[in-house]
Nucleic acid binder design. Structure first.
Length: 576
RNA sequence: GCGCCUGUAGCUCAGCUGGAUAGAGCGCUGCCCUCCGGAGGCAGAGGUCAGAGGUUCGAAUCCUCUCAGGCGCGCCA
């Protein structure tokens, strides 16, 4: 039940009736203070203005025959024309008892859509580094959320596997043609240094550089030797990535890979279609699309280059082919590009070209979900002490090691193996949650101490809150909390009940505007409200009926935290 | 030069389509409590929301300009 939407519908309908204006909005929002109720409608003032009438009078009329069907215990007009809605405890209890017995905490959305999520998309030439962390984690959380809401999610890992640097890598590999598979794997164990070596030779040795350029051409022309070497390299690189995804708890699989090379044989067709549509212009030998809305510094048209003067294609071409594939073949309703903010101009151009060229269906929405950069404590992009990029695998291992120290300090009596297990969950959770809890638009400062803190909006705090609730149910005399009937009386019970009911509102909201930090905030607030409830309302000491009701609230809280974290791609622990 | 993003408490960050007295955590000050696992609860101090105009009954939020930082801007991806 999405109470917010429900109230919006009823009250907006009432406003329309009274005002005679169709499409009036109630503008339901959470009330900021308890004295203003639980929800408030802010739409009266705007409508009154339109009608040039007194907002209080209009409010009175709206309230006159308003029937919320037992949802509210009190509805009042306040201030210049707010409608404050106080939710009835009986209604909360009734809703929670329905929720308690249902398998899912959130009902699937009525509309069934195909959602393509393009995320992670590292360059296979190199090892994944911290720059890939944020997009990978945010994209994965969004994919999970859409799936949970019953949408058909199509993950697309748009690997970079076809750029010019592969010529260089192939040349480097040519020295190893006689190696068998396991020996080759050993050579490629550290992709980073393999790449570095190749680059060094490329820069120092003209013969090597020439061979590399030739290899690019050969590769793209389908030369079998080059293709074989390329494929061997890609296979190993994909394995590296998959190991990383598994460790990080990312749902991407080999089947989700639609690398750049996948679109290779469609690129010529893209050019032809653009040409047929009369959109192509040749400029300095390159083939470009010029659109009016994009202009450069001198007010001149800004090109989207789709074919280089040497005949090669660019990533704009590949992205156009991908749009066509996703819209026309995958039948996407939404395509979400979880890609960092620096590419925003590129996407604006490509999306617009795709639209003008009809590469996408009318109702297919292309959305660039951009995100900011990870900074070090100095406020500059996050680097190693020596100024290099931080490998993702190293980062995860450091997180786990730090979590292990922390667990060992807090709980030294646990077996080491158990502490290791806890550490691997806490360390990964801390990193992921830290990324997700921030508004994706802003740059943020990476800080181990904050993300591993047990205070504040962090993974350890939530994991601890969860484990603590669960510990109640390990008592022998508590068998099946799902059976308990929930009663809602005390103020703290009401607050908790309402918050629990709002889980679906939050998840649905995130599916609309794709800000997972809203879900993090919800979980943090839920845990806080629960703590206040637990502080004020004795559970185990209460009389049977109340005790069981409160156990029911505890159980529902635990389930909600677990489900919420799971949507963010974070595991929970029964003990920690 | 043009464009995009960012600027909120000492620090790290929230603040949803404009709504009532701008919030949280850390740090600082004080208080309380022990049904689970104190990795707890409550309260206080701390803000010209970068600055200046404007729109509005109402602006951190929308518009314009200025300042500061980050990023992008024809054949890399």
């Amino acid at each position: 039940m999405n109470l917010k939407h429900h109230l919006e519908k009823i009250i907006a309908g009432r406003i329309s009736e009274v005002s005679g204006l169709t499409g009036s909005k109630a503008l339901i929002n959470y009330a900021r203070e308890a004295t203003f109720g639980d929800y408030q409608a802010n739409g009266i003032m705007g409508v009154a203005k339109q009608l040039k009438t007194n907002p209080r009078e209009l409010g009175e009329k709206v309230l006159a025959d308003l029937d919320l069907g037992g949802i509210a215990r009190k509805v009042e007009l306040a201030g210049p024309g707010f409608i404050n809605i106080f939710i009835s405890p009986d209604y909360l209890a009734q809703q929670l008892n329905t929720l308690r017995t249902s398998a899912a905490l959130v009902q699937p959305l009525v509309a069934q859509t195909n959602v393509v999520v393009d995320y992670s998309s590292p360059n296979l030439a190199k090892e994944m580094h911290v720059g890939h962390l944020r997009g990978t984690i945010i994209g994965d959380a969004l994919a999970r959320i859409f799936e949970y809401l019953g949408q058909t999610v199509i993950r697309q890992n748009h690997f970079g596997d076809w750029g010019t640097q592969f010529g260089m890598l192939i040349t480097q590999m040519q020295d190893m043609q006689q190696l068998d598979e396991s020996e080759l794997k050993k050579e490629l164990a550290d992709l980073e240094s393999f790449y570095r070596d190749a680059k060094e030779r490329f820069d120092a040795d003209p013969e090597f550089a020439n061979a590399s350029r030739e290899n690019v051409v050969k590769l793209q022309a389908g030369d079998s030797t080059c293709l074989k070497l390329w494929q061997a390299f890609i296979d190993i690189s994909v394995e590296h990535c998959q190991a990383l995804y598994d460790k990080l708890g990312i749902t991407l699989r080999v089947d989700d890979i639609k690398a750049e090379s996948f679109y290779n044989d469609r690129l010529a067709g893209i050019i032809i279609q653009l040409d047929d549509a009369g959109l192509l212009t040749e400029s300095d030998g390159a083939r470009c699309v010029f659109l009016d809305e994009f202009r450069n510094k001198d007010g001149e048209a800004l090109p989207t280059i789709v074919q280089k003067s040497d005949g090669g294609y660019l990533y704009a071409t590949t992205d156009l082919a991908a749009i066509q594939y996703r819209s026309k073949e995958l039948n996407a309703n939404r395509v979400l590009y979880v890609v960092d903010a620096r590419q925003s101009l590129h996407f604006q151009q490509v999306f617009r070209v795709a639209e003008v060229a009809h590469f996408k269906a009318e109702q297919c929405s292309l959305e660039h979900l951009s995100y900011g950069t990870m900074m070090g404590s100095d406020g500059k992009p996050f680097k190693t002490r020596t100024g290099g990029t931080v490998k993702l695998m190293d980062l995860m291992e450091e997180g786990i090691a730090r979590a292990f120290d922390l667990v060992s300090e807090k709980n030294p009596d646990l077996e080491e193996s158990e502490r290791r297990e806890i550490a691997s969950v806490v360390g990964i959770a801390a990193i992921k949650y830290f990324e997700l809890s921030k508004n994706r638009n802003s740059d943020y400062i990476f800080d181990w101490d904050t993300m591993l803190s047990f205070d504040g909006n962090t993974a350890p705090y939530l994991l601890y809150a969860y484990a603590r609730i669960r510990s109640i149910f390990r008592r022998e005399d508590i068998v099946s909390p799902h059976e308990y009937t929930i009663l809602v009386n005390d103020e703290e019970e009401q607050a908790l009940a309402l918050k629990l009911l709002q889980f679906s509102e939050t998840v649905e909201q995130v599916s609309e505007d794709c800000y997972p930090n809203q879900l993090c905030l919800y979980l943090y607030e839920l845990a806080g409200i629960y703590m206040r409830f637990y502080e004020a309302c004795p559970v185990l000491k209460a009389e049977t009926t109340v005790r069981e009701s409160r156990l029911g609230l505890c159980d529902l809280t635990a389930r909600t935290i677990k489900q919420g974290l799971s949507l963010l791609g974070i595991d929970t622990l029964e003990k920690m």
